[in-house]
Design a protein around this nucleic acid. Structure first.
Length: 503
RNA sequence: GGCGUUGUGGCCGAGUGGCUAGGCAGAGCUCUGCAAAAGCUCGUACAGCGGUUCGAAUCCGCUCAACGCCUCCA
């Protein structure tokens, strides 16, 4: 029985607003599209959370044995600069500010984005298409929507006709809005722009004089609308219908709503069967966002160089911290919470490393009950992961195994009662879930594996042993305390051996 | 105003109609020359008010509080 059959996934589908059993269109294969970053500034921690959430989905699907094509775009055409800025391309604006080529901005922040993804051990998608690389596809997409009568041209720009679309389909099916409500809400705001209706949105926009990024099209020299790229690229790489579409909660409306409308307006299929939305990272209860001034870059996070940070936190600590909550819940950041996560993470990883130091299992009278209990934690963790990717719950089971491992180390007679096969199964899966699914890796291993350091530590440990042997506790304690102040913790083990860990 | 979400013990955070979430912090004990680490034990939490039910933190209603999105326009 394959893992896919053994642990069927259920997922909360934003489109139907209920938890559903996940069934891909093609057996054992999954197509997933996630809205990527707009590369006009550094990503902050809130962005990281979204991409981490889908990293888990990606990793877990693969872990179960699915073949996954994961497409995550790079938005390099640029959207509107928020707040006060008046209708100017985000990237063009930034470019003029820094007096460099728009594509230079794009390259710089794309590189930066990749660095951040790597820092947090977030895997690269299968395909990472750019909007500027798919102008032709987008233009063709618009042509079809016009042909189908759901879009119109006005002065070189093309707009999606929401009202017309709504006659044949349902605009607002994802976000739970209806056209009439929206119309009555905006009647007073309807400006004198080119749109025939305030609800309409741009598919193609004619470039104003001085606009830096523009391309030729049948309608004008201009650029594509900001919802379009995802429709065009998901269709190209995953097909008109595919399995999963993900993104941040804040993209649900209007972005994803428009995407569905464009898809149906073009080829009648709405795109993804399952929509997954990751929730926001908050700081003191407020969404982390540039405009709030409460976002920090990964660099600030690691160094602790930010007014909200008491000190630095390692990337894996942050990753673990985020995985301790469910992706669909808001997660509130605080120094206290991060410090708690740091300790918990270390505890978990310490037990992973302890497994290799354990004696053989099953050397005594084997208890089936205890052996099954151990395997049960793995089973539970898998079930939890299959239950809407509940990493928080799965981690609870992992800590149970962690405790068991510690017990076995301290009391080998307990391990003697565990069936060797069961032990091997549980510990192998334990490591695999931590490393492959949760993407957590030890941050101390490399330092500890340094040969020179190992040698020096052996010298110190032996010196201390001699001091202890001659009951010179003042000296032995000094060695230990002084090492502690430089970040090395000595531990006197059961058998008289001494080990060390690096903070 | 519309749509959606949330409110859990000192902190962070899972959660199912009845059975211990888990992590961190705190208390006690064990081990230890002393530490550290680890193990064991402990707190009986679920915004408020009603209702459904044999039984609800978990279902329904109301109230309060908080948060997110809302056609801007490129």
């Amino acid at each position: 029985m394959s893992l896919i059959e053994q642990y069927p996934i259920s997922v909360y589908n934003s489109l139907t607003k209920q938890k559903e059993v996940f069934k891909p269109l093609v057996e054992d294969r999954v197509g997933m599209y996630v809205c990527g970053p707009t590369v006009y500034s550094d990503v902050h921690l809130g962005n990281v959370r979204t991409f981490l959430s889908f990293d888990i989905v990606f990793r877990y699907l693969k872990f179960l044995g699915y073949k996954v094509r994961y497409v995550r775009n790079i938005t390099d055409v640029g959207h509107l600069v928020g707040d006060a800025d008046e209708g100017e391309d985000k990237i063009a604006k930034k470019a003029r500010l820094e007096e460099i080529e728009p594509m230079e901005v794009v390259q710089k922040y794309t590189n930066g984005f990749h660095d951040v993804m790597q820092l947090f051990n977030i895997q690269a998608p299968s395909i990472e298409p750019t909007a500027t690389g798919h102008l032709i596809e987008q233009i063709e997409f618009i042509k079809k929507i016009i042909e189908n009568g759901f879009a119109y041209e006005k002065d070189g720009s093309v707009y999606f006709n929401v009202r017309k679309y709504n006659e044949a389909h349902q605009y607002g099916e994802l976000s739970g809005r209806n056209v009439d409500d929206m119309l009555s809400n905006t009647r007073t705001l309807a400006g004198q722009d080119q749109k025939a209706d305030p609800l309409d949105f741009a598919l193609w926009k004619k470039a104003e004089a001085g606009h830096l990024m523009h391309w030729p099209s049948p309608w004008s020299e201009g650029f594509p609308g900001w919802h379009l790229e995802c429709s065009a690229m998901s269709t190209k790489y995953l097909g008109q219908s595919f399995d999963i579409h993900g993104g941040g909660m804040d993209l649900k409306f209007p972005h994803h709503e428009a995407e569905i409308a464009q898809n149906k307006g073009c080829h009648h299929a709405g795109g993804a069967n399952y929509w997954i939305h990751a929730n926001m990272l908050t700081v003191n209860g407020r969404k982390m966002a540039k405009s709030e001034g409460n976002g920090f870059t990964p660099e600030e996070l690691v160094t602790g160089n930010h007014k909200l940070l008491e000190r630095g936190y390692s990337p894996m600590t942050v990753r673990f911290f985020m995985l301790q909550s469910h992706y669909a819940s808001t997660l509130d950041f605080s120094n206290e919470a991060l410090q708690a996560a740091e300790k918990g993470f270390r505890r978990l990883m310490a037990s992973v490393q302890l497994i290799d130091k354990l004696p053989a299992a099953g050397t005594g009278k084997v208890s089936q009950e205890k052996s099954e209990e151990l395997k049960g934690f793995i089973d539970q963790a898998m079930q939890d992961l299959s239950d809407d990717f509940n990493t928080a719950k799965a981690i609870a089971s992992l800590f149970e195994i962690s405790s068991k491992v510690n017990t076995y180390y301290q009391n080998p007679s307990e391990l003697a009662e565990i069936d060797a096969e069961a032990f091997d199964f549980a510990t192998t899966k334990f490591k695999a879930i931590i490393n492959d699914v949760l993407g957590l890796v030890s941050e101390t291993e490399n330092a500890a594996q340094n040969n020179v350091l190992e040698g020096a530590m052996e010298v110190l440990i032996n010196l201390r042993k001699e001091a202890k042997f001659s009951k010179d506790y003042a000296l032995s304690d000094k060695i230990r305390d002084d090492l502690k102040t430089v970040g090395i913790q000595l531990k006197d083990e059961k058998g008289g051996e001494t080990s060390f860990t690096i903070d």
